[in-house]
């Protein structure tokens, strides 16, 4: 049995106890928008938030992180070994699904991204279902929401009488066991409400945008010049779409000197930047903005599906809303889906 329920009061107790035992990262409001951060006081958690401005990927793939420190005098290289554990509470199902896709990509053999693996291993991810998706959202297309995602340990879904909790992984079950007295087994009525809710919200979203995702791989072969050239004219080549994306994982490295060591950092990069593929010789295999834009969409919608049996987009809608030039991935979906 992996379906449980919790009342709103018990949830408050759960969060309070969680914040005492673990490092708790949860959504709250700051400077006019919703954001995830480490919270000491769980009372500021906003359970009715839409979604956070920036995706929670940064807790697993930080914007900048140390790769190594090399001490030339001592002749050894130091690397971060273990990252602290945390609980990510209230992540939306789309963003949780992005983590499961990232697992596929970054942990695929023969090489594993060690820092990502370590952070992922040490984190408990608890998702909070979307019952009122935003206008920009299209997670229905990739089946990454709105109620259940793919990469979470526990799914919390608000209902009329509290929350339905679904344990999705053994780790999720152990969390329920740890706080056993707060949870009850979900009864038949609740389970019915749960499945009703899943189809109701999904239906709502399907009425807005219905795309056959399996047809999207055509984009690789059929991507005409016109659509991308039109949007390339608009594109201002900032990195916002990639940085806001819960799934964009490309990174850049940078070396520098410190007092007694050489250090290397790595951090987010974007394929929209003209510097992304330019080599030191000046040679650039991907010169035009239209090609770069086409690469971004092809990578997400055709190449990741072909290589990993998952989609490189989870339909969170961040890039749609944040793009200063109004480039809309939903137009790509409509055109090729």
């Amino acid at each position: 049995m992996r379906m449980f329920s919790i009342t709103e009061e018990s949830l408050k107790v759960f969060l309070r106890e969680l914040s005492l035992k673990h490092v708790l990262i949860a959504p709250f409001e700051r400077d006019g928008y919703f954001e995830f951060d480490v919270l000491k006081n769980p009372d500021v958690i906003n359970l009715n938030y839409t979604n956070t401005r920036l995706s929670p990927k940064r807790f697993f793939l930080p914007q900048r992180q140390l790769v190594f420190k090399h001490y030339p005098r001592k002749g050894f290289t130091e690397e971060p070994k273990e990252y602290s554990s945390f609980v990510l509470f209230g992540i939306r199902p789309c963003d949780a699904s992005a983590l499961s896709v990232l697992d596929n990509i970054l942990l695929s053999p023969p090489y594993k991204d060690a820092s990502y693996e370590n952070r992922r291993k040490n984190a408990i991810v608890i998702s909070l279902s979307c019952t009122k998706p935003m206008a920009e959202c299209f997670c229905n297309v990739f089946e990454t929401g709105p109620i259940r995602g793919m990469g979470e340990d526990l799914t919390f879904t608000p209902t009329r009488s509290g929350f339905i909790v679904e344990a999705r992984t053994p780790r999720g079950v152990s969390v329920i066991e740890e706080f056993g007295k707060l949870f009850r087994k979900a009864d038949g009525e609740m389970l019915e409400e749960y499945s009703r809710l899943i189809s109701k919200v999904l239906d709502e979203m399907n009425r807005r945008l219905k795309v056959d995702k399996t047809r999207l791989i055509r984009i690789e072969k059929e991507a005409g010049e016109e659509f991308f050239q039109l949007n390339a004219q608009r594109c201002i080549e900032c990195s916002l779409c990639s940085f806001a994306c819960p799934l964009c994982y490309c990174f850049e490295t940078e070396d520098c000197l410190e007092k007694d060591s050489y250090v290397r950092f790595r951090g987010w990069d974007t394929c929209i930047s003209p510097l992304f593929t330019r080599m030191a010789s000046g040679l650039d295999p991907r010169v035009t903005k239209a090609d770069r834009l086409c690469h971004r969409f092809c990578h997400k919608l055709s190449r990741i599906p072909l290589a990993f049996n998952a989609y490189g987009c989870v339909g969170c809608g961040r890039c749609v809303s944040l793009c200063p030039a109004g480039i809309d991935i939903r137009e790509v979906l409509k055109k090729w889906g």
């Binding site: 990509i105 970054l106 695929s108 023969p110 090489y111 991204d113 690789e220 994982y249 490309c250 990174f251 850049e252 490295t253 790595r266 990069d269 394929c271 992304f276 593929t277 330019r278 080599m279 040679l283 295999p285 991907r286 690469h295 092809c298 990578h299 055709s302 190449r303 072909l306 290589a307």
Partner: peptide
């Protein structure tokens, strides 16, 4: 062939072309 690379192991995305 040659390309810009940052990781060498298929993670950083710089040398990703057409799958």
């Amino acid at each position: 062939l040659e390309s810009k690379m940052r990781c060498g192991i298929g993670k950083c995305g710089h040398c990703h072309f057409g799958g």
